[in-house]
Design a protein around this nucleic acid. Structure first.
Length: 648
RNA sequence: GCCGAUGUAGCUCAGUUGGUCAGAGCGGCUGAUUUGUAAUCAGCAGGUCGUGGGUUCGAUUCCCUCCAUCGGCUCCA
């Protein structure tokens, strides 16, 4: 007998070789139907794998990531089985479970391709196979056996994967006629896979390397119940409604023009107002934190970027230099503000007493992003960074870094961004050639970031190879409506540019010293920030940010004069809004302005004119009753003040 | 840049197996209506069916190029 310990600490005896499924059944038959995998001493196993020693276990249902993972991973195998039936000779790459569903990378073979239109047939075959209740069987094999099998099958990608594996840790799984190299775990059989949707087809480079062959990646998702699939698809539809590209058009915030050029956003009046308010907000925060605004040009001599290293790193695949007509001097559209700010630093001798020097600029930069990369406002070719560079003494670095984190917290709090990921982006230790600067400087910079994040109690994830070429970063990532992660705020420690630009200050010892630089942008870029904000709020901005805070609507045009008077009064009270003077019924005007996400709708008719009031409607909440005009003005001012309290 | 898909009026979308096939709703304009809390009615104007080429007696429809967009991959200072 072996002793099994459950998560709640209870222990129970089972015969040696018992399986997860048997343990589940011993608790209840219903449970047995709902579990998909089991953790044995922290390792996730198949439910059918015999347990031969005392162990701590946890059974995983759909609600657990481990349960869904096994479900989707098994679904990927099921899809592969179906693909092999429909496309004999198809080659397989990798087919993992992902956050929402699974994918499999396949090579359909010369002259064959798979497109969206082919997916329903694959789905159908998967359904048929699933209904056969095929059993997933695990089989440990030796490396030579594994190599022999896939050589026989002629699957070069699997062979490549096997070569990187250690003998003794290789397992094959099969269900029906399909055999795959796989670590597992898997479902006991295919019977629980009841609802299948293959979502999309995409190209994906083998092993994520651009130089390798591009395989066809098929994304799909499966569920134990049809209802869950319906709900998931409904959720995707809902997310589409919050897409910032759709909302940007509907709310008339921004647009694009193929004539102007792809990836170059045009901000419409309402969008410009929104940006102005965001900038105003950050300016105030920064002023309180000792920043000084500067302004620099949109271009700079090519030499400037040769000095900074940007030219060597990005010059060839970037917008190419523009030239003066007579002298032929070369200038670059600025891809970064830091070199300009470095030159401001060195415009006069600096003393240790001047530091830290915090130079801020809403700097518009231009970068050549690959055409396939452009995406609404989140990935563009021209954008404005809420940039600043802090030049400080090494002994001030940590404190300055912590203060920047505070600013990011202030912003995220004011805009209700609670769901972010703090990512420590370090350099790839195996590819140091990608970066400039000495190991010593990198180590100093990386440990400064890690320490600061720790001190702030930030829960961080560490990503190797995600650093900027001149220094490591602390990035704040936020998800969009469809769960795609975007980097917003960023803080970067940089010992390298000060060196390249020969920046110095005179210390208290009367000697020359080198300052350290912090690059930081709490919003990241105005464009991307607005995009993510739009998707988070579905266009319902907080009152202080709303491009239009109120709209006046009259019951009939008999009250237009009074409405004009109210409009003037409110505008004079520094409240933004307009008079919807269309000759429409009140219901129509309410509907239209609700859809435009105007926070306050003011209805004016006979009663209101007589009593010098307005009838107030709050967006999404309906009628709030009558209110004197002055009171409404105060009410709005106070709400804005309350929302911006964080600035005080 | 790569793989796959899409592109019909300002927006959302119908339509043509190549031949009265250029349509609807919303939006816009004009008029009527003077309205009480999520769509008043009527009329009118809008499109060289993304662009350029080709096949054909004939192309919005078939083929190619380019442009833009969408889903991914790679990249992201």
């Amino acid at each position: 007998m072996i002793q099994i310990t459950f998560p709640d600490g209870r222990k129970r005896e089972y015969p040696e070789g018992t399986t997860g499924m048997e343990i589940a059944r011993s608790i209840s038959q219903n449970l047995a139907k709902e579990v998909y995998s089991i953790s044995v001493n922290g390792e996730v196993w198949d439910l059918t794998r015999p347990i031969s020693r005392d162990a701590s276990v946890k059974l995983h249902k759909w609600e657990d990531e481990e349960g869904r993972h096994a479900f989707w991973h098994s679904s990927a195998h099921l899809m592969a089985e179906a693909l092999e039936k429909i496309y004999p000779g198809i080659k397989f790459g990798i087919g993992p479970a992902i956050e929402n569903g699974f994918y499999y990378d396949v090579d359909p073979g010369e002259g064959r391709s798979i497109s969206d239109a082919d997916l329903p047939a694959v789905e159908k075959t998967m359904m048929e196979l699933a209904a056969k209740n095929e059993i997933y069987t695990r089989k440990p094999v030796s490396k030579p056996e594994a190599l022999a099998y896939f050589t026989g099958k002629g699957d070069p990608y699997k062979l490549e994967l096997i070569r990187d594996l250690q003998d003794g840790e290789i397992t094959l799984y099969n269900q029906g006629d399909f055999v795959d190299l796989c670590r597992g775990p898997h479902l006991p059989d295919t019977s629980s896979i009841k609802a299948i949707k293959l979502l999309s087809v995409a190209g994906a480079y083998w092993r994520g390397n651009e130089k390798n062959k591009q395989l066809t990646r098929i994304y799909g998702i499966t569920f134990p119940k049809q209802k869950q699939l319906d709900e998931y698809l409904e959720m995707l539809e809902q997310a589409k409604q919050r897409d910032h590209r759709k909302l940007g058009r509907e709310l008339e915030l921004f647009t694009f023009s193929a004539k102007v050029g792809q990836g170059l956003p045009l901000w419409l009046p309402r969008g410009a107002m929104l940006r102005e308010k965001l900038e105003f907000f950050l300016r105030k925060v920064q002023m309180a934190h000792g920043y000084q605004q500067v302004i620099t040009p949109h271009i700079g001599q090519k030499e400037l970027y040769v000095t900074s290293g940007h030219y060597e790193k990005y010059g060839k695949d970037s917008f190419q230099p523009i030239k003066t007509p007579i002298e032929g001097e070369e200038f670059l559209l600025k891809p970064m503000n830091c070199p300009h700010h470095c030159e401001i630093y060195s415009s006069k001798p600096r003393s240790y007493k001047d530091l830290p020097l915090r130079l801020a600029e809403f700097g518009t930069v231009y970068r050549y992003e690959q055409s396939g990369e452009l995406h609404g406002l989140t990935r563009v070719r021209g954008f404005t960074q809420d940039d600043a560079h802090i030049f400080c003494r090494p002994d001030q670095l940590k404190e300055e870094f912590l203060k920047v984190i505070d600013i990011i917290f202030i912003i995220f709090k004011a805009l209700d961004f609670n769901d972010y990921i703090a990512q420590v982006s370090l350099r790839d230790p195996n590819d140091k050639a990608k970066y400039i600067g000495s190991d010593e400087n990198w180590e100093k910079a990386e440990s400064a970031i890690i320490e600061a994040a720790k001190e702030k109690g930030l829960k961080t994830v560490v990503e190797l190879g995600e650093a900027a070429f001149y220094g490591p970063k602390l990035d704040f990532m936020v998800k969009d409506a469809l769960g795609r992660k975007w980097q917003l705020g960023t803080i970067q420690v940089d010992y390298n540019l000060p060196e390249r630009f020969g920046l110095e200050y005179i210390g208290s010892d009367d000697q020359r010293h080198r300052p350290v630089m912090i690059h930081r942008a709490p919003f990241g870029s105005m464009e991307r920030f607005v995009a993510v904000l739009l998707e988070h709020t579905a266009g319902k901005f907080p009152l202080w940010l709303a491009p239009e805070q109120f709209v006046i609507m009259t019951i009939s045009d008999k009250f237009n004069d009074y409405a004009e008077k109210v409009l003037k009064l409110l505008n004079n009270s520094d409240i933004r809004g307009f008079f919807d003077n269309r000759n429409e019924k009140i219901g129509k005007k309410i509907r239209d302005n609700e859809l435009r996400r105007i926070p306050y709708l003011l209805v004016i008719g006979e009663k209101e004119m007589e009593s010098q009031t307005i009838s107030l409607r709050k967006q999404g909440e309906g009628d709030k009753g009558a209110m004197p005009v002055e009171e409404f003005a105060r009410f709005v001012q106070e709400e804005v003040k309350r929302q911006l309290q964080i600035l005080d």
